[in-house]
Design a protein around this nucleic acid. Structure first.
Lengths: 189, 189, 189, 189
DNA sequence: AATGAATGAGACTTCATTCAT
DNA sequence: TATGAATGAAGTCTCATTCAT
């Protein structure tokens, strides 16, 4: 019983590592199995096939990220405070989980996971949608559609995290507060 | 010689289509060849191997995008006008070239092309670096490092283009001016 | 002990079903176990391996068929009456047991069970051999070797049963009496 | 061009041999390739997959058998002469082609080839259907449906050929004339 | 330059079987 | 006896690449 969890966990962990190191192509089942220290056949006890496994890992990571994002969040917070909290949470999460960040980005960029799974994952961010809605109704933030707001507030984080890992980058990374200020300047009404 | 161009072009075109439809990991040489109406063997006359071909395609598309970006640009323009021009050019290009946009994004997200090739591609945006530099010196834009500025000004475009293609999106896309205004609000000092 | 019989029975039943639906080569141990509602490991308590199980199943079915064939049979019967009885019994059995019929045919056609097991199974029809012998000695039936007689008298039944299951067959199946008359016409001296 | 025929032929030949020696299961693509002296990958140049290959080999053999069966046949022949000719042809063919005979039997017994392919193969025997029809109309043979006639006239041949190969058989095989006489006695009106 | 045919290596997946409980 | 979990070996098929023409 506990074993079940262990192996599944090990497999997801191994996949995360491999996909990050060399991309989704170049993460064959055999290597995943080896890294997780199980037989290739064992994978198929826990997952129907590779697609199913990728779906599972995407949802797991997305859920983890969403949970982190809304940690301490309440609808009682003002719109700005709400944004600030969620944004900071996401920033923290992404900075401390570059592998997860990269995986999510890859999954959302190329057709690794299935469309409805992607949709389900996006659903995890529902409180954020509601927050945006509230902000628009109260005329605190600009009245542009959700994914445009997301594009300017959260999507840049991905780029920043992904690039701050590279060595050749010139210039020092700004403080979290500065980066949020930019995001907020962008969307406030 | 003109033939040579034709086939290379056809191969690029085919790759672009396939990578977009089902991702890099579903774009085997055989399919690329078939779609380009050449023999698989012919590819190896023009490219050393698949890696080499992907490198070439990435650079070609990146160059095309960069050329579009700086169309009409001159260092005589004010910082804001400069940003506005380049931003609009990029916006136009990405909107009208979703396949190219997606390919670039995939290449920059997962290790499809080699690191130094990626660097070379980024070099094509050198005038933009210089523009940012000028903006920072003149205290017109915020003094944050280049890739953070890029993250907030240009990277959101990718997200917007990629998502505006999806059907299930709720809400109407904002006008180009609005979107640029957001970007500018974000980085101006 | 009664449990033991139950599981063996269930396994036999499951195998019969699977082999019939999609052929021997699509009846893996895992599916057999699932259909019989036992663990794959349990199979190996009752049988040494798959080969052993197939041997056992073949013999069991063959025995069942032979028992049915000689139900009511006695050496006191005249040759013709004897043939008629056995033939009718076989006809009844095969018509009412298409799965068993198909399994036997498959086992005897392709090397699913081992040669000596096959031989043992054929031995179950020994009373029939003796009947043929008697018929030949009394010059009631033709003096051709046993398996040729079998080929004309009983083997056609298999074909008829197997094909009468198909939908696209044109024409109505003849009555049992007609079919036996044909068989008898064929072998009588 | 001639190569193409050679390899395809070699593959069909190899499959025939392997399926006969150890059954359809136990004829993996790797062994087939090895016996045909080609790479496993080469198989997929000529056939879509294993199923497709089995379909092809079945139809090829069936066609060959049918061609042999109707060699010298004409609708001008009397019903009995017609039957005699076709029967003898089939007898000759099956006796001299035990591998082909066994393969056809296996294909028609277990779901190795697809239903419509099976149907197509049976269609090759169309002249025989017509001959049966003629025989029934002229009241020369019994008025039973086609597949029952086939079961008594031709199907026994398969059994005889398959068993005459076995060593342990007791008794000498009858002459062709005797065997046909049995078949004819069986179906004549 | 151009190709259709060919291929070894390796991808995903399933199999018969065994292990720990 | 009975099992769910686990597995090495082997299955089918695809891939990037090369060969002969």
């Amino acid at each position: 019983m506990s074993k079940r969890v262990d192996k599944k966990e090990a497999l997801l962990e191994a996949t995360l590592t491999l996909v990050n190191n060399h991309g989704f192509h170049a993460a064959p089942m055999s290597k995943i199995a080896k890294l997780a220290q199980v037989s290739p056949a064992t994978i198929y006890i826990y997952f129907k096939n590779k697609q199913d496994m990728m779906n599972a890992i995407y949802l797991k990571v997305k859920r983890e990220m969403a949970d982190a994002a809304f940690c301490g969040y309440s609808t009682d917070l003002s719109v700005k405070k709400g944004f600030e909290l969620v944004w900071s949470n996401v920033f923290e999460y992404k900075m401390s989980h570059p592998r997860e960040t990269k995986l999510l980005e890859q999954c959302e960029t190329s057709p690794i996971v299935e469309a409805d799974v992607l949709k389900e994952g996006i659903g995890y961010l529902d409180p954020l949608s509601k927050l945006m809605q509230r902000g628009k109704e109260q005329h605190i933030i600009k009245d542009v559609c959700d994914y445009e707001l997301y594009a300017y507030v959260f999507y840049p984080l991905t780029f920043i995290v992904l690039n701050s890992e590279r060595e050749e980058i010139v210039g020092e990374r700004s403080k979290s507060e500065t980066l949020f200020a930019m995001a907020w300047d962008c969307i406030r009404a």
